[in-house]
Amino acid sequence: MTRIARSEDRPTPVFRECDGAPWPSDDELELEAAWAAFRESGDVQWSTGDEAPSANPVSPSLARSAPLRVPHTLHAPDGAATWEWEWDDVIDPSGSEAAGVSDIDARLGHLECVVRDRQRATADEYRLILAILDDAAFDPTPWVGPDPTVDRAWSDSRGRTPGAVRRDRVDLAERAAVAEIAVRLHLSEQTVRTRAAHARTLAVGCPMLWTAFGEGRFSEKHAVDAARMASTLPAGDADAFRRFDDEACAQALALPPAKFAVAARAIRERVHAESIETRHRRAAEERGVWMRAELDGMLRCTRFSPLTALAP
Rank of each mutant, 00 (worst) to 15 (best):
S219H: 04
R200N: 12
D92P: 05
G95S: 03
E97D: 00
T278F: 10
G42F: 05
G20D: 04
I267Y: 01
E8V: 09
T122S: 14
A266V: 15
P146M: 06
A176L: 15
A248E: 04
P22R: 09
F38T: 09
L299S: 14
R243F: 08
G79E: 02
R127K: 04
V150L: 15
A176V: 14
R279Y: 10
S59Y: 07
A212W: 06
W85Q: 12
V183E: 13
L111Y: 09
R242N: 05
V144E: 07
C301F: 00
S94M: 05
E274Y: 06
F244K: 11
P306G: 02
A179L: 13
W46E: 09
D19P: 10
F304A: 02
A238G: 12
E277Q: 15
L31R: 15
F260K: 03
G49Y: 11
P146Q: 09
D105V: 11
R3K: 08
P53V: 06
S7W: 07
T211I: 08
T211E: 14
A309V: 08
S94F: 06
T48F: 01
A36L: 00
S7P: 02
L295T: 07
R292E: 15
A250T: 11
V165L: 14
R39C: 05
E215N: 08
R166L: 10
L185P: 01
M291V: 11
P67K: 03
F241Y: 15
S41I: 00
P13A: 09
E220I: 02
W23C: 12
A248S: 12
A263R: 10
A34P: 00
D171Y: 00
E32W: 05
E294C: 13
T122K: 14
V178T: 11
M208Q: 09
W210L: 03
R118G: 09
R64W: 08
M229P: 13
T278S: 14
E180Q: 14
H198G: 04
P71E: 13
T149S: 05
R118W: 03
K221G: 12
A199F: 05
S157Q: 00
G214E: 01
T12C: 03
A226L: 13
A258S: 13
G205H: 15
D19V: 09
A197E: 09
L307E: 07
V150K: 13
P306R: 02
Q251K: 10
L185G: 01
R152S: 15
V14C: 05
L172K: 06
S231H: 13
R10N: 08
F304Y: 06
R167I: 08
A266D: 15
S47N: 11
V183S: 12
A33L: 14
A21P: 02
P146V: 03
E285V: 13
A226Q: 13
T149K: 02
V70F: 12
D26P: 04
A99M: 00
V14A: 13
V144Q: 10
H72E: 15
D89G: 08
R152D: 15
R242I: 01
A238C: 09
D296K: 06
G109A: 12
P71V: 15
P256C: 06
V224G: 11
A258M: 11
C18L: 14
S47P: 07
L253A: 03
R64I: 04
D296I: 02
A227P: 10
F244L: 11
R69K: 14
A106R: 14
A223F: 09
A199R: 11
